[in-house]
Design a protein around this nucleic acid. Structure first.
Lengths: 310, 310
DNA sequence: CCCATGTATAGTTAAAGCCTATCGCCATCG
DNA sequence: CGATGGCGATAGGCTTTAACTATACATGGG
């Protein structure tokens, strides 16, 4: 029993004439005749009473035809589902973002994605890089926004923008007079850092090789956020390093805080999109990337498409 | 897209492993692999994300699988319908009976059929032979009970029993002293007959060649019934001829009426079943025939199966 | 009794469905 | 870092099937 057989069956039930039904199905009369016969044999019931005068459907035949129509209807729904789902911009996209990007990117990103792809709602999760990577591989997420380096088997990564780091000082700090701060001097200060697991912490430490967590006056804030650290800096608990998108987007005229760039070469992090190589909705990823680049992110430099990294 | 494809699809969605899904479908892994690929091409959507680690179903894939399951479920219902409908004794049987048999046969027939085939309700229609024949050919009836001769193209007829005719006299009639009445004498009497269209009328006239409707004292009762005629005989309006099943089943001890057989050779009519040659539920017909023969019909002689007439 | 109509059958061909064998990819492990 | 093993994709060949054309067969009507 195939869907074709059922189509023949329904056509014959409608036409009550093998020739006409065959014509309607664009097949020859013997084709339809044989198909119906086979179907009757398979089901071991007589579906039609044939006679020279006309074709009559049996009682059981009528019931089976009704059911066959239901089957064909449901099968047709599959095609419709496929047509509707063919657009990569239709259906929800599960997006993951690391903690140190989410708060500064998402307010810009979300409305832009919604404008570009209204029927693609974003399901957003913020987490550490490692957790996001896991979810991505499991399929709980479709795309993630992370900082490089990020390499996972089966995952492709595409750099989107670089963002420089900034030094955040409490108002009145001695370094306020400096235009730019050399990274090496961070070792001198009480540096507030995020806890382990935040990639940004590692990147700051990498930018300032002399800083060693646990040594000197640096303090690590486990399970905290850049926002918390910023408030601590404002209270004079120390200084910190922020990505430009977090530092430059300070509420205008915050007199308690001062932002200073690093001396060149500025330390920076490269932010990238990542997804499974097998992920089929590349169009959706393009929309995300475009929306990120369209966002007014302070201090960032877009990384051209040639800069795609594997 | 075939039902087989959908089965593969559902299996793969369940197993998330081409090899295992193939095994469950009793096909080789390449077979399933190719089938899924073709399905994806046909629908122009990616249903699964394949990777070395595992197989993930896409969002749209999951929706299509759900729909495919619905299709397969409905298709399975067809088989169940067929199985249920395979029994010829299941489902209603549309039975037609001529007016001059129905009242005497059906009270016996119906309970017997119900006992033999409880799931085969009888839908009964009483009418003239010509009307029954028309309905039978149209398919509005499945089987009819008529008196022979009855020949129609595409219709097979099987004799079931012969029933002799009887003379019905009002009590006190001059012929009451006779044990048997010769058919020829009917011409002498005021003979009450059914109207044209009732085959029994023609059979009586055939049995009594000297009787001519409209001549002598015979009266024709258009649109009437044997019961009405019987009551008229009881009031002395004339005499009549009845089939034995109608005559001998008189309410016991009806002192107003007298029944007399004809002299041999008794005139009789042959009652038969008829159905379309194409009618598939021969088992149902057998039940009807058996139920008729099992009925206590006064005076009838069963016609052996060899007596089947074309 | 032949003809018209309609379905079933025969015979053939093209396609499809399936199998075995093998490739290629990737992740894991010694 | 190369070997290994699991897994899906691909290739080639075979069998089945579904389609066609031509024709036989059945039946009701002129």
């Amino acid at each position: 029993m195939t869907l074709t057989d059922l189509r023949y069956l329904v056509a014959l039930a409608r036409e009550r004439h093998f020739g006409h039904a065959a014509e309607r199905c664009n097949v020859s009369q013997p084709t339809l005749s044989v198909a119906i016969k086979k179907l009757e044999e398979e089901l071991a019931v007589t579906l039609f009473e044939r006679s020279a005068a006309d074709v009559k459907i049996t009682d059981i035949g009528a019931r089976i035809v009704a059911q066959a129509e239901k089957v064909l209807l449901e099968a047709g729904q599959i095609k419709e589902l496929a047509t509707a789902g063919r657009d990569p911009l239709s259906g929800p996209l599960k997006l993951g973002v690391i903690y140190t990007i989410g708060p500064y990117l998402l307010p810009h990103l979300i409305p832009r994605v919604h404008a570009a792809a209204p029927s693609m709602p974003l399901l957003i999760q913020e987490n550490y890089t490692a957790r996001l990577a896991e979810s991505l591989k499991r399929g709980d997420l479709d795309v993630i926004v992370v900082a490089l380096p990020f390499e996972e088997p089966g995952i492709v990564t595409q750099a989107v923008y670089d963002e420089p780091f900034r030094v955040l000082l409490p108002a009145g700090h001695g370094w306020e007079s400096e235009e730019r701060i050399p990274a090496s001097r961070l070792a001198e200060a009480p540096l507030l850092l995020l806890g382990a697991g935040n990639c940004f912490r590692d990147q700051v430490l990498e930018a300032c090789p002399l800083c060693r967590p646990g040594e000197g006056l640096q303090r690590t804030l486990e399970g905290s956020s850049l926002e918390t650290i910023r408030h601590m800096v404002a209270t004079g608990a120390g200084i910190t390093v922020l990505p430009s998108t977090a530092a430059d987007a300070l509420p205008g005229g915050n007199s308690l805080l001062t932002v200073r760039p690093f001396t060149t070469p500025e330390p920076f992090r490269r932010v990238a999109l990542a997804w499974r190589v097998t992920y089929p909705r590349s169009g959706a990823i393009d929309v995300i990337r475009a929306a990120i680049l369209d966002s007014p992110l302070a201090g960032v430099k877009p990384v051209g498409s040639p800069g795609r990294l594997g």
